[in-house]
Structures are given as structure tokens and as C-alpha cells.
Nucleic acid binder design. Structure first.
Length: 682
DNA sequence: TTTAGGG
DNA sequence: CCCTAAA
């Protein structure tokens, strides 16, 4: 589904070699200052000029021939198509003057082809047209420069047709595509298109598109194919009108990534609109919705300023919750990249149908309703939230692929391919678990990052731009996930992987003859334990939470230590000695990639403490022991006393032997000792 | 980068 | 679990 969408998008953009696009004819053609342009936009932007998009992305005024050609095509298309809403092309004179920075803000307003028109939208449009048409004509007269007169007039005709008629952009595009493809040569444009494809892929369903991010390639976005409708925003507004408070809240959450307890419908609407508008940062913000009508708001400010003022003005006194927008502004400095990122995020969130949230968070929402005031969500909470979304998202993406590449599973189902050893390895990896069905992991990007940047960041950068699309496609095609893993993983994680891939054999190799027996036995136990784990923690845990722990910098999802893990840990300590956590982790915990050496250390510390707390008199102290046991009942996995005692024993032995004898030999002895005990207990 | 220890 | 100093 997603793939399909994306595919179509990509294909659309892949063809954008040379295209025709409407662009607002600015008065005086060149040398128009921004203020002028603003004025135009504010008053009435509906004069168009045809431009041609060159391979390198430049906009070139269309020649008469071209205009004619397009017109012809449009006429043709119009006849064949049903009629509905108009599509306005507010393509802000993109970048052909060489100062695209600000002006690009205005770009990307052309119509998307997949906009569905519900009656409301249609009405709104019609009303809008009613209002705007006179102005348009007037404006046309005023603005027509000698040079652009030709084109703009013709284009106006075209657009007028569109008003009552058809979204001819699609048609235009379609018609032009063959030609485009044939003419397409410049690789740069391809890259451009790709990029935009990605961009759009994330922003597509968002009613407040974030085309701004494409500013560098804005020339293309101004074309017919650009699917950032100014009306989508309006549409969003209209939709908002019909939403219940709860839905509005959902939308709010989708927009800002957090929940709100505000029940003020108006406020919510404004907020959401604002969020969307900010995402687009387009002059359309000049339009405001009033009673389902679109009203042109006189704004003389610069777009950027406009944002601010809007923000301020819409910060209602009733707002108890911290203003998301404000916080956004604070957190993310005005650096364009950051903003872009943020907007992407927003749009991504929007991508999710609200219904999803309805289902999943209904309870939460209701609870929040019950509670009068909800305290400001903690950062952690927000993070979790975002993680949830992301996870869900990836899960959904994968659901369609679930059945692919099953053959990869090894005969020993428990020996899972180790996707990534370091807990911060590649941002995406895949794994299969034949036990409880298996989950596949996908690359995902954690939106919230805390602390200093880590490797993930780079990885992320690597994969996000072009990676996600192809990846998904690949996966969707059923290419074994593992392949991807090795492919992508090795790229990031150096050459550490190979040895890890076969952890169990490693054990055997290290073990002596004598040990082999015990090891094999132990292996069996371990396997059993792992099975145990799988039923309990691993099944759902691994597949889902792991990527989070890896990619996200967020706090690691709490993972209860299973008995099997504890045993492995103990065994590892026995074998390699306490303190050599890295080694233990590498060798004994190869299959538990989510346990870091620090984790092992911590766990061991806890174990030790527990064992000491319980063992000193070995059940001698009645109350204390029982208390300990009871309290241990709290723990997800009560640690059997034998294990605890063994831990203590090990610790003692370790401390002794380490000081007296060489650690290396001793470890072997200790290991065997443990093995015996372990087998006895298990 | 790993280990040890505090929080 | 997280964080950080120290090696």
C-alpha cells in the first residue's frame, strides 16, 4: 500500500525531466523585490505564467510554442475528464532569479494529483473562486507586463477552465511525461527527482505539505507534478471543522507529536492549522477559515514573520500546556535544516491516519479527559510516544512483508542471525525469529534524539535520504531480510560481524574436550532457556523493541532479564571471569545483542547483591530470606536461589582465585564448576 | 573502547 | 538503566 503510493510518486517524479509549470507572473517579470511579490501574493496571486523546467531544474519562461502545446494538451484533457475543483498553481517564482531562498517559501503550491474532493472541499473551492475570480481578473490586468502578457493570458484561460473543470495538472503531467522522459538526460535532475520523491513520500498525505524542504530543488516543485496544493491546507481546515474535539486532539497529536488536553475546539483547530501551515510556510496562510469560508487575510508581513505573529496570536491564554510550536521554535533554532527536519517529522506524523490514533489511544485520551489537567508530558513520555508511533509505523510497513525470506532461518531456530552486535550498530537491521513467528526490523528514524549525536546520526543520514525507499521496496519484493542486514550492517559496523554470526560454535571451539560435553549440555539448556525467553520476552520484545534500542538514543526499553540470560551471564562470568564483560557479552551473549557489556556488569552487580542479601546465612535468617524471596517475586523472573548461591560462590571464588592464581586458567575451572551446577539445577 | 562505580 | 570518570 505504502509502496504503491510511493511507487507512483516516484514514477511521477522520475519523469520530470522537462516540464511545464505554471508560475505566478510577477509584475515586471524581473527585478521584482520581495515586497512586491509579497504584495502580489497577499492581494492576489492568480496570474500565471508558463515556465519550462530544464533538466538542471531551472525555470525557463515557456516559449509561445510551448505554451501552445500545453494549452492544446490541456484542452484535450479537459474534455475527457470530469470536473471538479480547481487547481491553483502558486508556484512562487522559483529560483530563476538566483535568490531562491525566501521565495522558495512560496513554491510548492501547485496542486497534487491525488487530492480527493469531497463536497465540502468543492464548496470551499467554489466559494473561493467566487471571491477570487474578480480579483484575478483585475489583477491580471494590473500585472500583465508586456512581456508576460501573452503567456499569462493564455495561462489564465487555462486556469479558468480548471476552475470549473478539472485538475488538469495530472493530465498535463501525463501528457507531458513521455516527452519528458525522452528528453530527460541530466542525471542531476534525476537525483533531484529522487529526492523529491522521498520528500513527497513523507509529506504526501499531509494536508500541510512540507515542500519547503525541497527548496534547493524548488524549480522542480513548481512544475505540474509538484503536488503541494494550497488547497490542501484549506481542506484540512475544513475537515477540522467537522471533527469532534477528540478527533481534533488526535489531529493535534498527530501534528505536534504530543497530546493535548485542551478542549477548546477553536484553539485546537487553530493550532493544528498553524502546525500544518508552519509546515508549509506558504503564503496561503493568508487565508483563514471562517465558518467554512475561506477568507483572505490581509497580511503584509514577511512569511517568516508571519509565522511568528501567527504563533503569538494563536497562543491563547487558556493554554495550559506548553505551546508545542513555541517549544519547537526554541528547541529547533531557526536553522533551515532543523526546521525542515521538524516539518518532515510533522508531516510524517500526519501521515498516519487519525483513525489509527483513535484506536490506539482512545483509552488514553479518555483518561486524559477524565483528568482535569494533564501535567505537561515529560520528555521521556514524549520520546516513548514517538517511539510508539515509529514502531507502529515500521511494523505496519513490515506487515506486508512478513512472509518473505523465511528460508533464511537456520536449522537451529534458536540461533538467530546476529543482526548487530553493538547496541548502536546500523540503524536498521533485520532478524528472524522462527520461534514466535518472526519480526522483521526496518530502518527507522528516531525523531527524538537526546544527548550528543552518535553514530546513529550518521547512519541515519546515510539511510534516510535514499535508503528508505529502496529498502522498503526491496523488502517488499521479498528479498531476504538477512541479506539486507549483512549488506547494510557491514557498511557501518566494520568487520566485526563475521565471528559473531556463529556464536555458538565459538563456544565449542573454545571449550576443551571435556568442556565440550558440558557445553553441549549447556547449550541444550540454553536453548531451552531461550525458548523460554522467546515465549516470554523475546518474541515480542526482540522484534519490536530492539530497533528502538539501537537507533533511538532514547532510553533503552526496559528489558527484564530472563532466566536464560542470567544463566548465560553466570556462565559467562564463570568462564571468562567477572569483569570481562565485553568478552562475555561477545561470546556468551552473542544472541542477545541488546545486552551491552554494561548491562551485564550491572546485572551481575545486582545478582551479586541479591545473592549476598539472601545467601549470607543461606536461608538462615528467616524473615530476611523470605522477604528477599518475596520481593524477588516482584521481579519479572524470580531468580532461583541456587543461581544466586552460585553467583555468590562464583564471586567469592573469583575474588580469591583472581588474586592468587592467574585468572585465565582459573576461569576454565570455574566454568566447569558452574556448568556442573547449572546442569544440576536446570 | 572498556571497565568500574555512582545515581 | 543511565551517566561518567578513568584506564
Amino acid at each position: 500500500m505504502v509502496d504503491g503510493e510511493k511507487e507512483s510518486e516516484e514514477s511521477d517524479f522520475g519523469k520530470a525531466g522537462v516540464e511545464f509549470s505554471m508560475r505566478t507572473a510577477v509584475d515586471g517579470e524581473k527585478g521584482t523585490e520581495e515586497s512586491d511579490f509579497r504584495k502580489i501574493v497577499a492581494s492576489d496571486p492568480v496570474v500565471y505564467q508558463l515556465v519550462r523546467v530544464e533538466g538542471d531544474g531551472r525555470l525557463v519562461p515557456a516559449t509561445d510554442d510551448e505554451v501552445m502545446e500545453v494549452e492544446h494538451l490541456l484542452e484535450e484533457d479537459k474534455s475527457g475528464l470530469a470536473s471538479d475543483g480547481d487547481k491553483k498553481h502558486f508556484d512562487g517564482r522559483v529560483s530563476n532569479e538566483g535568490l531562491p531562498s525566501k521565495k522558495s517559501d512560496f513554491e510548492g503550491l501547485s496542486q497534487s494529483e491525488n487530492t480527493e474532493v469531497d463536497s465540502q472541499e468543492l464548496n470551499a473551492r467554489l466559494e473561493y473562486i467566487e471571491v477570487m475570480l474578480p480579483k484575478v481578473k483585475q489583477e491580471e490586468r494590473l500585472r500583465m507586463s508586456p512581456e508576460s502578457a501573452n503567456h499569462s493570458t493564455k495561462c489564465m484561460d487555462v486556469n479558468h477552465q480548471t476552475f470549473d473543470g478539472r485538475d488538469e495538472t495530472q493530465a498535463c503531467k501525463d501528457k507531458l511525461q513521455p516527452e519528458n522522459t525522452s528528453m530527460e538526460t541530466a542525471p542531476s535532475s534525476m537525483a533531484l527527482n529522487d529526492r523529491q520523491g522521498v520528500q513527497l513520500e513523507s509529506a504526501e498525505t499531509c494536508s500541510g505539505p512540507t515542500n519547503q524542504a525541497v527548496t534547493s530543488s524548488s524549480t522542480v516543485s513548481g512544475t505540474c507534478t509538484s503536488s503541494m496544493p494550497d488547497f490542501s491546507i484549506l481542506k484540512g481546515d475544513i475537515c477540522l471543522d467537522n471533527l469532534s474535539i477528540r478527533e481534533l486532539q488526535e489531529a493535534f497529536r498527530a501534528t505536534f507529536g504530543r497530546q493535548t488536553s485542551v478542549k477548546d475546539k477553536l484553539w485546537l483547530k487553530r493550532r493544528i492549522t498553524m502546525g500544518l501551515t508552519n509546515s508549509c510556510d506558504v503564503p496561503t496562510s493568508n487565508f483563514v477559515m471562517k465558518d467554512n469560508k475561506i477568507v483572505l487575510k490581509e497580511v503584509k508581513e514577511e512569511p517568516s514573520k508571519l509565522q511568528k505573529s501567527k504563533t503569538e496570536e494563536s497562543t491563547l491564554p487558556t493554554d495550559q500546556v506548553t505551546d508545542p510550536t513555541n517549544s519547537n521554535f526554541q528547541d529547533l533554532p531557526t536553522s533551515p535544516t532543523n526546521q525542515t527536519e521538524d516539518q518532515q517529522v510533522a508531516s510524517k506524523r500526519l501521515r498516519k491516519p487519525l483513525s489509527e490514533y483513535d484506536e490506539k489511544n482512545e483509552n488514553l485520551q479518555m483518561e486524559q479527559f477524565a483528568a482535569k489537567r494533564v501535567r505537561k508530558p515529560t520528555r521521556r513520555y514524549i520520546e516513548e510516544l514517538s517511539e510508539f508511533e515509529t514502531r507502529e509505523c515500521s511494523a505496519r510497513l513490515l506487515s506486508s512483508v512478513k512472509n518473505s525470506g523465511h528460508d533464511q532461518s537456520s536449522p537451529k531456530s534458536r540461533i538467530r542471525p546476529v543482526r548487530d552486535i553493538g547496541s548502536r550498530g546500523p540503524s536498521f537491521s533485520t532478524r528472524q525469529d522462527s520461534l514466535g513467528g518472526f519480526g522483521i526490523q526496518v530502518p527507522y528514524v528516531s525523531r527524538v534524539r537526546r544527548g550528543r549525536p552518535r553514530k546513529n546520526f550518521v547512519t541515519l543520514m546515510n539511510y534516510h535520504p535514499g535508503g528508505i525507499g529502496p529498502n522498503l521496496v526491496k523488502t517488499a519484493l521479498g528479498i531476504p531480510a538477512l541479506q539486507q542486514n549483512s549488506e547494510g550492517g557491514s557498511r557501518v559496523r566494520k568487520a566485526r560481524t563475521p565471528p559473531m554470526l556463529i556464536p555458538q560454535p565459538n563456544f565449542v571451539d573454545e571449550g576443551e574436550k571435556r568442556d565440550a560435553e558440558t557445553i553441549y549440555g549447556d547449550d541444550e539448556h540454553d536453548l531451552g532457556l531461550e525458548e523460554f525467553d522467546a515465549s516470554g520476552d523475546n518474541t515480542d520484545g526482540n522484534a519490536n523493541t530492539e530497533p528502538a534500542s539501537k537507533c533511538g538514543v532514547r532510553r533503552k526499553h526496559h528489558r527484564a532479564w530472563t532466566l536464560g540470560e542470567v544463566l548465560k551471564l553466570v556462565e559467562g562470568v564463570a568462564r571468562y571471569g567477572a569483569g570481562r564483560w565485553s568478552e562475555i557479552r561477545r561470546l556468551a551473549f552473542a544472541s542477545y545483542s541488546y545486552r551491552t557489556s554494561v548491562d551485564l556488569k550491572d546485572k551481575w552487580r545486582n545478582l551479586l547483591r541479591a545473592s549476598l542479601a539472601q545467601d549470607p546465612t543461606d536461608e538462615g535468617v528467616g524473615p530476611l530470606a523470605t522477604l528477599a524471596k518475596n520481593s524477588r517475586k516482584h521481579a519479572s523472573v524470580p531468580i532461583p536461589t541456587p543461581i544466586l548461591s552460585r553467583v555468590r560462590e562464583l564471586a567469592e571464588m573469583n575474588s580469591q582465585t583472581c588474586t592468587e592464581l592467574g585468572p585465565s586458567k582459573i576461569t576454565g575451572h570455574g566454568g566447569r564448576n558452574v556448568q556442573e551446577k547449572g546442569s544440576g539445577f536446570l
